[in-house]
């Protein structure tokens, strides 16, 4: 899952990037409103964390409005030191999905990110993604298949997370890169292949029957249960 953080306080922005990355989120940072808006409009993020007051032509409210005008419905979590009721109402009415007051607890931010990125089928209390017997616990970062728990590296976790959010959909390598790696990551053409292979070694290879990760020649990959 890829997250955009738009925040002008360097320290908060950098700490967020560090914290979110270590949770397996590919995180990009924009330090002012104009860059933030450009990123939000051009890259396919799964969530945008937006500071309310930003230097540059666009503040948080303006960015949300512009995104919604351009029909970009990515969930937006607004982060702000302004806590008056009219401020919160203005933020939510402009199109933000959630609002958090600074200073906030990182733990709560993570919970809210999970809540905002939950799909309709995954509104379970245990923060799990599931597809036909293969599941992923978003908190412990463990995968489960046939009652066995599988430990994953951070990137493998992000990759499986993305696949499980798009079951039975053919995903191109570019799509996978866009949602699993951040802007600064060094990606070689075969990086995706390499990580898919590693994931297969853990999720498919050790089990006798059936596979989940399918290669679609010439297109990309697909999560689908096959016997």
């Amino acid at each position: 899952m890829r997250i955009l953080v738009v925040e002008d306080e360097y320290k908060i922005a950098n700490a967020l990037k560090r914290g979110l990355s270590s949770e397996g989120y590919a995180t990009d940072v924009a330090y002012n409103g104009d860059d933030g808006l450009a990123n939000a409009l051009n890259d396919p993020y799964d969530l945008v964390i937006l500071d309310r007051m930003l230097p540059g032509g666009y503040d948080g409210i303006a960015i949300v409005s512009e995104m919604r005008k351009s029909k970009i419905m990515t969930p937006v979590l607004m982060l702000t030191a302004k806590d008056s009721i009219p401020d919160r109402v203005a933020g939510l009415d402009a199109g933000a999905d959630d609002y958090m007051i600074k200073p906030f607890a990182f733990e709560e931010l993570l919970a809210r990110i999970r809540a905002l990125t939950r799909s309709d089928e995954n509104k379970t209390p245990d923060a799990k993604l599931e597809y036909k017997g293969l599941s992923l616990d978003l908190k412990t970062k463990l995968a489960f298949r046939e009652g066995k728990s599988i430990e994953l590296s951070l990137k493998e976790f992000s990759l499986l997370d993305y696949l499980l959010r798009n079951p039975e959909v053919v995903l191109t390598k570019q799509q996978i890169i866009d949602h699993v790696w951040d802007y600064d990551a060094d990606i070689l053409p075969n990086t995706v292949e390499a990580f898919i292979a590693m994931l297969r070694n853990k999720v498919d290879r050790p089990f006798e029957k059936g596979s989940y990760i399918q290669t679609i020649r010439g297109f990309g990959y697909k999560l689908e249960k096959r016997a």
Partner: peptide
């Protein structure tokens, strides 16, 4: 008051986030 509280909250938010993220590492 709103400005002052903003100015007080921002350093607190920086510290809190940095410390929490470091503690999780």
């Amino acid at each position: 008051t709103s400005d002052a509280s903003h100015e007080l909250r921002t350093p607190l938010a920086s510290m809190k986030t940095e410390i929490e993220v470091a503690l999780r590492d």
